[in-house]
């Protein structure tokens, strides 16, 4: 394992923020840390980045404690755009490369390489202030990469971006992974984790409540498919589901019914015949279903802003049927 986090504990103001957190990141993977607000994602990021010292526990990078000079091997991409707006992209990257001890000819080589990695070669000599928000985000990533770290830690890398810019960043992160980079990212966006991460950890109250690949996490839901049903009489619908032997969860104004076998839309509609159904979707188990189950707040509205706008980002078929 490239990064090993063991027994990480942190208290703030007498409150436990992290309680014995353990996880590991393998070389060449994208590992995603998910969790609701207050789960400890940012504290974990701050400790890994070096902003904060943990009360207890150990962080090892390539087998060595992460601290002092070893921090040079880590690249940090903070949530905010942390660049000098009046300087050009190239000047920014030169500064950050030298800050991490890159010297001589290596500086220009690393700057050019990072600009190429994030697709900003054509804008290399433009001031950052003249770049679009998405381009600034990409340069923000490049500033974390420019000293050629073995691990890149990103805190909410697409927060506040429009869909097009978000997809650009996703492509960039995939490209970095394909070139052998190891990435650890915290995110609020379930689709981001679902699309990018080879393994995902879900933090709840400072502890890792679930971890695994997407398939492993999906396997926690005992269902072949999930039917999302909007109904005038949700109580009656839920009673019918229980009578049919189906588990269900409330998801905002929908009821998610777990189907143990794959079914057709017509088949599901037939099972709930006689009820005033306004809408019905049928889709495979998604990370969102797992996430709701793990965080233990099934009535919390979805945190995924893209789910309703970017069907293409959600793997698997998604069909709507309105009776």
């Amino acid at each position: 394992m490239l990064l090993e986090v063991t027994g990480l504990r942190m208290q703030r103001g007498g409150q436990e923020v992290l309680g014995s957190l353990d996880f590991a990141v393998d070389r060449g993977e994208i590992y995603g840390l998910l969790g609701p607000n207050g789960a400890g994602k940012t504290t974990c990021f701050d400790i890994l980045a070096g902003f904060l010292a943990a009360d207890a526990g150990e962080v090892r990078l390539e087998g060595c404690p992460l601290g002092g000079e070893a921090r040079r091997a880590v690249g940090i991409v903070p949530q905010e755009i942390a660049l000098y707006p009046k300087l050009t992209c190239r000047q920014n990257l030169r500064f950050f490369a030298r800050l991490y001890g890159v010297r001589g000819d290596a500086v220009e080589a690393r700057v050019s390489g990072s600009l190429r990695d994030v697709g900003l070669e054509a804008s290399a000599d433009r001031p950052v202030a003249q770049l679009s928000g998405g381009m600034q985000r990409r340069l923000n990533v490049a500033a974390g990469l420019v000293h050629d770290p073995v691990l890149l830690i990103l805190d909410e890398p697409t927060v506040g971006l429009d869909l097009a810019s978000r997809l650009q960043i996703w492509n960039l992160l995939r490209t970095l992974r394909d070139r052998g980079r190891t990435l650890l990212l915290t995110t609020h966006y379930l689709e981001e984790a679902e699309t990018l991460c080879s393994r995902i950890g879900i933090l709840v109250d400072g502890r890792l409540a679930a971890e695994g690949s997407l398939e492993e996490l999906r396997g926690r839901i005992p269902a072949a498919e999930v039917a999302g049903i909007e109904c005038e009489e949700p109580t009656v619908l839920r009673e019918r589901a229980e009578a049919l032997g189906f588990a269900w969860r409330s998801a905002g104004d929908r009821t998610a019914v777990w189907l143990p076998e794959r079914e057709t839309l017509e088949g599901v509609a037939a099972r709930f015949e006689g009820l005033a159904i306004r809408g019905l979707t049928l889709q495979p188990v998604r990370l969102e279903d797992v996430y709701r189950e793990v965080i233990g707040h099934p009535q919390t509205p979805s945190e995924s802003s893209l789910a309703h706008h970017a069907g293409a980002a959600v793997p698997g078929p998604q069909v709507d049927w309105t009776p």
Partner: peptide, 13 residues
Amino acid sequence: ERHTLKRVLLSPL
């Protein structure tokens, strides 16, 4: 204001 202080803080400088 530009949040660059965090990057400077994290660097070995």
